[in-house]
Amino acid sequence: MENAIKAKVKKFLSRFFKSQEIADDQDIFSLGFVNSLFAMQLVLFLEKEFDIMVDTEDLDLENFRTIDLITSFVEKKQA
């Protein structure tokens, strides 16, 4: 389950980080590639792909900073 979620997240992120391999624990917001548009696209992607609702209380960088954290967040929301 975790691997399937992670694979989908990685595939989505690869659109924005084409020239760079991102480690699962790497801070994607510190790489300088993302902007506010990406933040909202990420929310829409997670909601559509995993059939979850990202609520106001979820808007914490600690839920989205790395691939590992995004994966855990999706698992938590689906539980």
Partner: peptide
């Protein structure tokens, strides 16, 4: 309508 993130761009 389908919630695709590409809608923003």
């Amino acid at each position: 309508e389908v919630g695709d993130p590409d809608t923003i761009m």
